[in-house]
Design a protein around this nucleic acid. Structure first.
Lengths: 154, 154
DNA sequence: CAGTAAATAAGAATGTTTCTTAACTAGGAA
DNA sequence: TTCCTAGTTAAGAAACATTCTTATTTACTG
């Protein structure tokens, strides 16, 4: 999630066996800059277009796909509409607002531990678990304010 | 999830303030018959077309939307592609196979309790929680066999 | 720096969903 | 029952989202 220089991006592309093209670099930069907003291909395209007026939308689609395959990005599940991407590939969960269509990240080590323990006591047959996440669905109360999660003192 | 007669469907439609039209009845029947497969609008359309050759795909889309709004159905989140629906509106979780694109239901009271307890100790500010679910992502091992979840004896 | 395999731009094609409008129908009132 | 009306539907156009095709360009190899 930290800022990467272009050379660092170049290196991680090569490490994944991908050619370090200008297009791939700027797509990855744009997704990183938009992190937290779970952008669509169109969002990413709009973001990098001013500085890269010749890039094509098809390339953005293809590049995001490629990055998802190599694990450099994740696809975020959503209730439909368009595909959305996340530069945070660590285990984390999402809060979905059905009113504003926002998807808010939320990370909780305690919850993660709880689930790891739970699934260690279960066996999913004929399935290789790659990851898990929780999704909370509901509605924002004040559409203009932020959503945040805090611990309640017992 | 149990079988409903047409009169029972008619009643639940009326209870939701909807006119009990033939189209709504057969759409609801079709989704119920396809339960477990998380059908798309197109799937539902194909299912009920033979017996209802004059129904239009647009009506199926609109009807599924209407049912989702009233809470008679749920929309299942997925990694993109088309919108998928679920006739099971109880709290339950999903296993996603990235290979076959299958979505398998899985229900676990113990997990549900665990999460209820967890969230009772957290406060999500500016957000009204309507529900939660877990998603397991990964890959089927044998594409032709079923996925099942069992408890491991400690 | 030349050769080659891979990647890109552009736009066509495909797939998915919503919108528009005129015709139809369920359910309430007479 | 029959009529009335608001809500619903069929059909297809339109909008939106994604993938595919092909000629051209580019990154990497030696």
């Amino acid at each position: 999630m930290q800022h990467l220089t272009r050379d660092e991006i170049r290196q991680s592309l090569t490490a994944c066996g991908l050619k370090a093209t200008h297009q791939r670099i700027v797509v990855l930069e744009a997704v990183a800059e938009l992190h937290g907003s779970h952008p669509t291909a169109e969002d990413v395209f709009q973001r990098l277009r001013p500085a890269n007026p010749t890039i094509s939308l098809g390339t953005v689609y293809k590049t995001l796909d490629t990055f998802t395959e190599t694990g450099m990005l994740r696809r975020v599940v959503s209730e439909g509409g368009s595909k959305r991407y996340d530069s945070n590939t660590m285990t984390h969960s999402h809060i979905y607002c059905s009113k504003t269509k926002e998807i808010v990240d939320f990370e909780d080590k305690e919850l993660e531990q709880l689930l790891i323990k739970f699934f260690s006591e279960r066996q999913v047959e004929n399935f290789e678990i790659k990851g898990f996440s929780i999704q909370l669905t509901g509605c924002k109360v004040e559409p203009d304010k932020k959503i945040s999660i805090t611990r309640v003192s017992k």
